[in-house]
């Protein structure tokens, strides 16, 4: 506790850093994975190839990736951007397949009916495909959010600051309280973001909230409709 009290602002700094890297990485992953998933949904063959190549990305070890990215894009090794890009690549690799599943989960009868009513292509995307694929997509987003938050710590090995620094620094200097703080806070960030995602998910998909009463009401109504 005394260590934590003495190092409050440092810990807060690292915490903030951590979130500032994880959140953009997740956001980029979502956009990229949705685009790839959509591509794969639309053109099966091309999609299978692209998704296959994307999932290979996940097998590239993190440290080499953190060295290759700055070389290819000529950005500094020790920059947040470097780590954000690396994590976004992993996130995309993990999420693209789920995004494809998400689009496949949309009932084609619903999509066709929407088209027949006179929705434009863009209308179907925004008003039908996106909201209806969201529940499956969200399950994937939760997975990459948690994995991204824990992966951010790796940046400490090449000098990109995050809660990972509490781990490396703690080990080097043998400060147990620092290590424990790093671990606990990393888990906490993951849990808080996950809970937020679940809440947002429930908020934007009200049609999936089933009241237990709905089922019994349903039956009663049909008899009422007949006798009416």
């Amino acid at each position: 506790m005394t260590w934590l009290e003495a190092n409050r602002s440092y810990v807060l700094d690292m915490l903030l850093q951590h979130v500032q890297i994880a959140v953009p990485a997740v956001l980029i992953s979502i956009v990229a994975a949705v685009a790839l998933g959509r591509l794969a949904w639309r053109w099966r063959r091309v999609g299978a190839v692209v998704l296959g190549a994307t999932s290979l990305l996940y097998s590239v070890p993190a440290l080499p990736l953190l060295i290759v990215i700055p070389v290819v894009l000529s950005i500094p090794l020790r920059s947040d951007l470097n780590l954000i890009i690396a994590l976004a690549l992993y996130g995309t690799a993990l999420l693209a397949g789920t995004a494809l599943d998400a689009f496949r989960s949309v009932d084609p009868r619903v999509r066709e009916a929407a088209e027949a009513l006179g929705h434009s292509r863009a209308g179907i995307w925004w008003k039908v495909d996106l909201p209806l694929s969201f529940p499956v997509l969200l399950s994937g987003i939760r997975v990459i959010t948690v994995s991204t938050v824990s992966l951010v710590t790796i940046g400490a090995l090449v000098g990109i600051q995050s809660l990972g620094n509490l781990l490396t620094d703690g080990f080097q200097r043998g400060i147990h309280a620092e290590i424990v703080t790093g671990i606990v806070l990393t888990i906490l960030v993951a849990v808080v973001l996950d809970v937020l995602l679940v809440l947002v998910g429930a908020l934007v998909t009200p049609w999936r909230r089933r009241t237990p009463r709905a089922r019994s009401r349903r039956r009663a109504d049909d008899t009422a409709a007949v006798s009416a």
Partner: peptide
Amino acid sequence: PQAGGLLP
């Protein structure tokens, strides 16, 4: 539409 064509 046939059954199931409402926007759920």
